[in-house]
């Protein structure tokens, strides 16, 4: 290490700017998760319907979203939709739309999995006690699915945060972009800035995701 590139981080408001950049991605992921949860619950229930038509539709939606890299979906939303429909979606909006579509599919699949994992006997026992379908759903099905879903939903949040790092590739100014600006601005004074800046970004992401993962794992153990 020929120079002290680490100093770049403490110059002016550089570190603060990085944090602000991180907030851009965190904000997009948070909004996406908050929208995905209720939509995913509806989608998950929709997927458990026995109707062949609804089954086919939800299947195609889920499979398409799942098989495409999220970056491809981002490109389609950002470059394709803008042109095809003449809407000009900003990068922020198209990113949020894509992550909500993706999150809804993933959340829906989690909800579906939790719903069908409840043994038929649980329904029979509830019916045998004179409960109506609605009562069975509220008192037996929902609490049991809820417990299974909480850790999985928290996990989905970390996946969402990691995935939103992609938005830099459609030009959103987030933490990686800010990092690059800082590096470029100090190219001659601190040639080794890149190591420190990207190292710090790496750690920032870790600090954002790791506690959430730990929490999910703990809950999974307790309720699993």
């Amino acid at each position: 290490m020929q120079d002290s590139g680490i100093n770049v981080l403490f110059m002016g408001s550089n570190f603060l700017r990085l944090l602000e950049g991180l907030c851009v991605t965190l904000r997009i992921s948070l909004i996406s998760v908050i929208l995905s949860i209720p939509l995913g619950i509806f989608f998950g229930i929709f997927m458990t319907l026995k109707n062949p038509f609804s089954k086919a539709i939800s299947r195609i939606y889920l499979e398409f979203i799942r098989i495409m890299p999220q970056l491809v979906l981002l490109f389609i939303a950002y470059f394709g939709v803008t042109r095809a429909f003449g809407w000009s979606l900003s990068a922020d909006v198209s990113a949020t739309v894509v992550f909500v579509l993706w999150g809804t599919a993933e959340m829906g699949d989690l909800v579906r999995g939790a719903l069908i994992s409840i043994p038929k006997n649980q329904y029979d026992s509830a019916f045998a006690l004179g409960m109506t379908k609605a009562q069975t759903f509220i008192h037996i099905v929902v609490p049991q699915t809820f417990r299974r879903l909480i850790p999985l939903t928290i996990n989905l949040t970390t996946r969402m945060i990691k995935t939103t790092s992609l938005v830099v590739l459609i030009g959103i100014t987030e933490v990686l972009k800010v990092g690059k600006q800082i590096i470029d601005a100090n190219r001659f004074e601190y040639p080794s800035a890149a190591l420190w800046v990207y190292g710090v970004i790496f750690l920032l992401y870790f600090l954002a995701c790791w506690p959430i993962s730990v929490m999910a794992k703990k809950l999974e153990k307790r309720w699993g």
Binding site: L169, L176, I183, W196, G199, I201
Partner: peptide, 14 residues
């Protein structure tokens, strides 16, 4: 707990 893109930036530029 870190995105691949960030890992790559560190490897390639850092």
């Amino acid at each position: 707990n870190t995105p691949l893109l960030v890992q790559l930036f560190f490897l390639y530029f850092g």
